[in-house]
Design a protein around this nucleic acid. Sequence first.
DNA 1: TTGAATCCTACAAATTTGGTGGGATTAAGT
DNA 2: ACTTAATCCCACCAAATTTGTAGGATTCAA
Lengths: 152, 152
Amino acid sequence: MLSKKAQYAFRALTALVEEDMPRLQSLEGQSPHDPAVPVPLNLLVQKHPMSVKFLETIFLELRKAGILGSKKGKGGGYYLMRHPEDVPLAQVMRVLDGPIAQLPCVSLNFYEKCEGCNEQQCGLHRIMSDVRDAQLGVLENRSLWDLARAGR
Amino acid sequence: MLSKKAQYAFRALTALVEEDMPRLQSLEGQSPHDPAVPVPLNLLVQKHPMSVKFLETIFLELRKAGILGSKKGKGGGYYLMRHPEDVPLAQVMRVLDGPIAQLPCVSLNFYEKCEGCNEQQCGLHRIMSDVRDAQLGVLENRSLWDLARAGR
DNA sequence: TTGAATCCTACAAATTTGGTGGGATTAAGT
DNA sequence: ACTTAATCCCACCAAATTTGTAGGATTCAA
């Protein structure tokens, strides 16, 4: 299951992209993406009611992971470091919830060997690898842009 | 992530199928599947070290869900109610870990509406539905038989 | 009658989740 | 300089979930 953290994050990030939508549309595939106007948390929270304090810790993690940038002080806030099209959901999920795979021994980014199990001949390992590939097939190919653009 | 419960279950069920392998192979697609010889837990635990007591509670759940049958008393134990080929991993996981979907609002078997979100135009809903389909595409089509047969 | 097994419920320990509180720091506007 | 609005940072906390354990009751075969 997605944690509440990830769920809140996706709502807030959607709102963040929507906030920046006019400027983003005028760019139309131009890169590099020059940093957007910072949006303060309390603005995002107005659109999707949630604890500002909690969202603060969430966005802090995303900033440390290089997905968000921030500006302090009056007129400050958060902004995306890349064009939303270049931020796959998988990346956000890994930052907030850790591994996407269902088992450590099939994780690409958080691999851990499981003791007492030869991966070559472990049925569970093979099947869960297939599940991981299936999940990543979606999550690596859907971006924050897809997320925000959905209802329109 | 798969819970320890589900992981233990899969190991033990694999051992259970292997225990019954000679008889199963002689059946070769015959149905209905006549109940197998009961295998006691302490035998399964010898092959994959884990707490018998914990496995007991796990197998109890699987029995109540109709996946396993049991025989009490001396010479008793657990057996599969169906041919392992007819037990998809998805079913075992739902019994022990609950929903497979990453969000209640995209779950087929444990659906719950998420308040304040129109599913028709919710980007997350659409994407997580795709993820669910991708997962189920694997988990509904891999059985205990596939699990046990893997290394051979 | 004995021993081997499941059945059942309650509880306990450990971990994770979902936050909250209080201040420190930074920056813009006046 | 002062005020105000914002992020930054870290500690802590309560609730829920996970991961078992304990102890007996029941069943059945030999």
